[in-house]
Amino acid sequence: MARRLTAPAAGRVYNLSIWGIVRHGDHDAVVLDRTSATATPGVYNLWLEGGGWVRLGPVVARDSRTVTRLVGSVDPMGALGVGRRASWSGIYYRDPADAGLDVEGVVIETPAGPAPAWLVRPPETRGSDWAIHVHGLASPRAGTLRGVQVATEVGFVSLVVTYRNDGEGPTVGAGRSTLGDSEAEDVRAAVRYAVAHGAERIVLFGWSMGAAIALQIAMDHEFTGVLDRLILDSPVLDWYTTIAANCSRVGLPSETGALARPWLECKPLARAVGLRAPIRLRRFDWVSRSASGPVPLPTLILHGTHDSSSPPAAARQLVGKQPETVELEMFSADHTLCWNSDPERWKRRVREWLAEPDAHLEVDASKSPAG
């Protein structure tokens, strides 16, 4: 379990079949295997084995084995065909150009080595308001483009980062993840880059494990006064709970997750797994840490009611303990699919949070839990 959780970045799994291409009114529609994911309302992407993708809209028909969804658009490189294998994803945009964003490629010097990043400057911006977007475990930075679009509309400069062992950033050791522990050092370098290039107010967007990283950085006194707020989608707020949930998701008793902990937290066992150092999992238990004081920044959490990877119970507990600091917006969605389930509501909520910096209570940083 510990090896699988920290495994080096790998490619997609193409576990769906295209059973048919049909017409529905004036639109093409694709017939797919019926699963809990493919039958879910919203807009998604179907990545095709061999290259290309298909954007999918609502379900228009279903039976016990298949669902039929409207086709929104097809990548020119991804011709639809019966029998093709495909991978289901909430990553809606392939790259910034696909999301309608003008981008500059930059490199951030991190403790792990040079890390490529995307820099997106809106046509109209003060240049001092920045958003830094941090993707999650086993997810490419393109997944954050759903949030970059909104930040760009509001006038924020966006920095979309990579970090060690994510498949795009520098490789360290055996390429294993440390679940946000050491990766946070690389994102800290990105915050310093933003400050050096004119950022005076920074919002951190964190997705899944990226949220765990963002919370760690929010504790740094180095960035007091420049970090303004957090936007966390499907955040990992407690790795113990998340590991147990992922055991349940693959058919194991949730209690077996406890067996993985020593292999992550104990130095000799962690080395046997392939890690260079143990992972400090307790640092990521934000519900317990909140007893020492509030999260130091106003925080918006966007979470799915059906999240099978990072259950929303921890988010609800955190809001219950810190209602003056943390706000929670729930969606009928699975992990990191809140935007996909209801793009307009997701964008509206984030836009409100970004555009009204004075609408939320200030947090006394002196009362925040020790980093």
Rank of each mutant, 00 (worst) to 15 (best):
A115D: 09
E109Y: 00
A117N: 06
I108L: 05
G127F: 04
A115S: 14
P122I: 05
G127S: 05
E124C: 01
R126F: 04
P122C: 02
G127M: 10
P123H: 01
G113R: 06
P122L: 06
V120G: 00
T125I: 05
D98M: 04
R126T: 15
D102V: 14
P116N: 14
W118N: 04
L101W: 00
E109W: 06
P123C: 04
P123T: 04
L119K: 03
L119P: 01
P116D: 14
P111W: 07
A99W: 09
V107E: 15
P116M: 13
R126H: 02
V120L: 02
R121D: 07
T110W: 13
W118R: 07
P116K: 13
G100I: 01
P116H: 12
L101A: 02
G113I: 03
W118T: 03
P111D: 05
A117P: 05
D98N: 12
T125Q: 11
T125Y: 07
V106S: 01
D102S: 14
V120A: 01
A99P: 12
I108N: 07
I108M: 07
W118P: 06
T125P: 08
V120K: 01
L119Y: 01
R121Y: 06
A117K: 10
R121E: 15
P116I: 13
I108G: 05
E109I: 05
A117F: 00
V107W: 13
R126Y: 04
L101G: 02
E104G: 01
P123Q: 05
R121W: 06
E104F: 00
P123A: 05
R126G: 15
R126P: 08
E104Q: 09
V103D: 11
V120D: 00
I108R: 03
G105Q: 09
R126S: 15
T110S: 14
E104D: 12
V103T: 15
A112S: 15
T125D: 11
V120S: 02
A115P: 10
A115E: 11
A99K: 08
E104Y: 03
R121G: 02
V106A: 03
A99T: 09
D102T: 14
R121I: 04
A117T: 04
E109F: 02
G113T: 10
V106W: 00
T110M: 14
P122G: 06
V106Q: 11
R121P: 08
G113H: 11
V103L: 03
L101R: 05
R121H: 11
V106M: 02
G113D: 10
V106L: 11
P122T: 11
W118A: 03
P114L: 04
R126N: 15
G113V: 08
R126I: 09
E104M: 02
D98S: 09
D98Y: 02
D102R: 15
V120N: 00
A115L: 11
G127C: 12
P111A: 06
P122D: 13
E104W: 00
V107C: 10
D98R: 08
E124V: 12
D102I: 01
V103S: 14
E109M: 09
G127A: 10
T110A: 14
A115R: 07
T125W: 06
V106D: 09
V120P: 00
R121F: 01
